[in-house]
Amino acid sequence: MSVIPVNENNFEREIINADLPVLADFYADWCGPCRMLRPTLEAIAADRSDVKVAAVNIDENPDLADEFDISSIPCVILFKNGAEADRSIGLVPREALEDMLG
């Protein structure tokens, strides 16, 4: 799979109601560490069929960022059964995100 763009309209369908655990990357285009992290997320999306990877642009979806109390990006939130299970802030290596998935 590839990284799925998510916005306020499809957030519920793609993340809250997803069958698989979702890694949702809250990012912005102007954020350097976010751009650095993107290849890692793409690699996870490509390699793992048991996880869905989504990306939420916080400039286009500020209400979602606010709803999840986000004040630093990149912020990758792990959703399981529609609820936040864990989150990772800042540029992290792939293992850190894999560890979060358990």
Partner: peptide, 17 residues
């Protein structure tokens, strides 16, 4: 609270405030 109000980089995170 890092990423939930605490930041070490104003130009990175200022937009949230």
């Amino acid at each position: 609270l890092v990423g939930r109000g605490i930041s070490y980089c104003a130009t990175c995170d200022g937009a949230f405030f």
